[in-house]
């Protein structure tokens, strides 16, 4: 069961009307290392991971949906009042032809989201290493998005999301350490 909360995890403020940025930001909506892929990856792996780390996968997977909503908010705000002409100039003509103002799960190059972006091997170590890699790749994507953005308010939200990837990576690496321990052994600090 999931319960929706009627608020964003972090404020999203967009100060400049620049629909071109929406075209880039959509990478983190429906791209290979985006928030949708992350949420689906963790919430699927949790069924076959040792019980000690199910909670972590559940909680990080849930947080990823909050991040997906933040990205959606950015795209929504950047495009909602643009004319078709402006969207065309921003390189979103192809998007408009198929989806009008609707958001769609595809990457910055327009490739539709595919579940082949994510893996589930059923081997706890292999799965957690995929998760760590996914977090570092998402962190890198946020860096490139910050580089492409000159809206300081938008950059602020992207920096928040980037730092979350750093923390998630930290927790996944701790999960690996927990699984490396022998049964019953306490983690000593």
């Amino acid at each position: 069961m999931w319960i929706y909360e009627k608020k964003l995890q972090y404020p999203v403020k967009v100060s400049k009307c620049d629909p071109r940025l929406a075209k880039y930001l959509i990478e983190q909506y429906g791209g290979a290392d985006g928030e949708l892929a992350a949420a689906l990856r963790y919430l699927n792996q949790r069924y076959t991971i040792p019980d000690k780390v199910i909670g972590l996968l559940t909680d990080i997977g849930t947080e990823e949906f909050a991040h997906l909503e933040m990205i959606a908010t950015m795209v929504y705000k950047l495009t909602k009042d643009a004319t078709p002409e402006q969207l065309r100039e921003a390189g979103l003509g192809e998007h408009y032809a198929d989806h009008s103002y609707a958001l769609y799960y595809h990457n910055a190059a327009g490739h539709p989201f595919t579940i082949t972006y994510i893996q589930a091997k059923g081997d706890p170590i292999a799965d957690l290493y995929e998760d760590i890699a996914a977090e570092e790749k998402a962190r890198a994507t946020y860096q490139w998005l910050i580089d492409l953005t000159d809206d300081v308010d938008l950059q602020d939200s992207l920096r928040f999301l980037r730092e979350r990837e750093v923390i998630h990576s930290q927790r996944f690496r701790e999960a690996v350490e927990i699984l490396k321990d022998h049964e019953g052994e306490k983690k000593v600090f």
């Binding site: 995890q9 404020p11 780390v53 972590l56 909680d59 927790r171």
Partner: peptide, 23 residues
């Protein structure tokens, strides 16, 4: 909203931390 977001964020951070540091 901002006050709530700040406190909720601390709870998110502590949740993930406690998931790997339950003791």
């Amino acid at each position: 909203l901002y006050e709530l977001q700040a406190v909720d964020f601390v709870l998110v951070e502590l949740t993930l931390y406690l998931d790997t540091h339950p003791d």
